[in-house]
Write a protein that binds this DNA or RNA. Structure first.
Length: 182
DNA sequence: CCCTGATTCGC
DNA sequence: GCGAATCAGG
């Protein structure tokens, strides 16, 4: 019988399909089951599918013989120029903040009916982290104002759910025109 | 913090 | 051939 994590013809074909379909390695791994995303990526490479929809095959990075193993963990600390240690913590979000709130309020008069954001994840601006969803919740002028705080999508300021709302192609936007109530 | 794919190398 | 560990980037 086929082992759960064996690369049978079926699984390989599904892998190819999903990979070319644009799914991430982790998503494919979850879909296939019994395999990790590393296994998926490894197989993808062995099949020669790497690269995917990446423009015109970018010139493979000149990796040559890059020692990815134990590369001098302690590169010593010259500490000559001291560097320009950027002051973290003081994110300049004042300008963007106003803009985001404004568009958000107008764009989402009413999220939906099956949308439930766990209150437990809502955070104040003080608890907001880079990886947290910045979707504004509530009235910014009140002390009750919070941000979604859920895990944000890579490269995006919002979680997957709010990213969709904020990033609608404008074509779907008129879907919820029936109800307009604040 | 989380995620992504890329690569290497012991098995 | 396989995939965990690791790397590099977002």
């Amino acid at each position: 019988m086929n082992e759960a994590g064996a690369w049978t013809e079926e699984r390989v074909e599904l892998l190819k399909k999903l990979w070319s379909d644009g799914l991430s390695a982790s998503q494919i791994a979850a879909e296939l089951g019994s395999v990790t995303r590393n296994a998926v990526i490894g197989k993808v490479h062995r099949l020669g599918l790497s690269g995917r929809a990446k423009s015109a095959a970018q010139p493979a990075a000149p990796r040559s013989n890059a020692p990815r193993k134990a590369p001098a963990r302690s590169p010593s600390h010259p500490m000559a120029g001291a560097a320009s240690a950027p002051t973290r913590g003081a994110h300049a979000l004042a300008p963007d903040f106003a803009v985001e709130v404004e568009s958000a309020v107008e764009a989402s008069p009413l999220p939906s009916e099956d949308v439930v954001i766990p209150f437990s994840e809502r955070v104040t601006i003080m608890d907001l982290r880079e990886y947290m969803c910045r979707w504004p919740m509530g009235d910014p002028t009140t002390p009750e104002f919070r941000f979604c705080g859920a895990r944000s999508q890579t490269g995006l300021p919002y979680c997957s759910h709010h990213a969709r709302i904020a990033y609608q192609p404008a074509a779907d936007r008129r879907r919820d025109r029936s109800k307009a109530r604040a």
